[in-house]
Design a protein around this nucleic acid. Sequence first.
DNA 1: GTCTATAAGCCGATAGAC
DNA 2: GTCTATCGGCTTATAGAC
Lengths: 206, 206
Amino acid sequence: MHPHFSTKERILSAAEELFARHGFAGASLRQVTAAANVNLAAVNYHFGSKDNLINELFRRRLDELTARRLEMLEQAEAQPKPTLEAILEAFVLPALNLASDQLGGSAFMRVLARAYAEHDQTLRKFLSGNYGHVLKRFAQAIRPLLPELDKEALYWRLDFVSGALTYAMSDFGAVKRPPGRSEEDHRRQAAREFVRFAVAGLRAPE
Amino acid sequence: MHPHFSTKERILSAAEELFARHGFAGASLRQVTAAANVNLAAVNYHFGSKDNLINELFRRRLDELTARRLEMLEQAEAQPKPTLEAILEAFVLPALNLASDQLGGSAFMRVLARAYAEHDQTLRKFLSGNYGHVLKRFAQAIRPLLPELDKEALYWRLDFVSGALTYAMSDFGAVKRPPGRSEEDHRRQAAREFVRFAVAGLRAPE
DNA sequence: GTCTATAAGCCGATAGAC
DNA sequence: GTCTATCGGCTTATAGAC
């Protein structure tokens, strides 16, 4: 009846929530293990170190997120006339689904926002080494649809787009769900607004 | 000949650099005072606590930054036909000037990006209490220029804009400065690209 | 104002019993 | 795999000499 949550997953979920709230340096393994209701030593047994726990926390979510994004991107490109809208939706919708459907997905998006601000070498190397290819892949897909835009300008704008998305999805944004609207409607509204905004921004005249 | 830097200011500058690199919890007062070449106890003598040092660090920069932004906003609004470009420039250019002209200004922008990701009560209350009125003031200025946009859509888009700006200002982004271009030129290019992107995004058809 | 010395406590990581 | 106990080191903050 009840699903079984392993010690490892309980630690990952508690870490996600606490790192979202207090940052990687700001939340201790003692807080994490207390919240997960596991022994302090379990972290080192299952993950080896705090740094590696952080890496695994990202891997648990990002492997699936990037797979869904690339999957939708291929579907969009398989159309006879791929649109900028469809490509951007391939980037945005999987992230929104993760944030709203999966337990703890919203905390994960806040952790991701923190990772962007983190200049520490260890985490940045892990993320750009394992997931940096995704942004490049999307840039390649978008480029032929904006032939008048030079390569540098395109990179600037994609940078703005992913920044806007990251911060919009972490919950400190100004836009709260109005009472009486379902979580799913709110998400679809956010996706629609975001894609419209991003398409227009990318298409801005040089 | 040489300007005199007080103990207090040396601490603030060292803190700015170290908090930018490692975060508020990640950099210790021992690291800060060592970098500033002052005694450890000087922090508590001059600032009382680490939390208050952080507040004073923001006050030192933000008082002038918000003054310049509101100044430029008033100039933009004083024109017979205020433009969206001019209003956005009033928000972006003072930040850009701070980042590129003032010693340590670039580190401060990274600290500011960290503050956005910070959900800790103490810092957020200080910032929104002292400087929260600025964003509202800009929203009021922009609204009459986008009369066709409903209030909720405008808030969505302003949220996207400030996310994109925050992200772009911290230097995590994919766009690296090309060799042979000065740091200042790179930032001016970023500002130009950003305003173009943001204006187009805000003006997207509903 | 600046210093030394130290208090009081939390940190990550590990050794070793079960 | 999970536990207790602990090591060595780091943290903020302060008391008190100069």
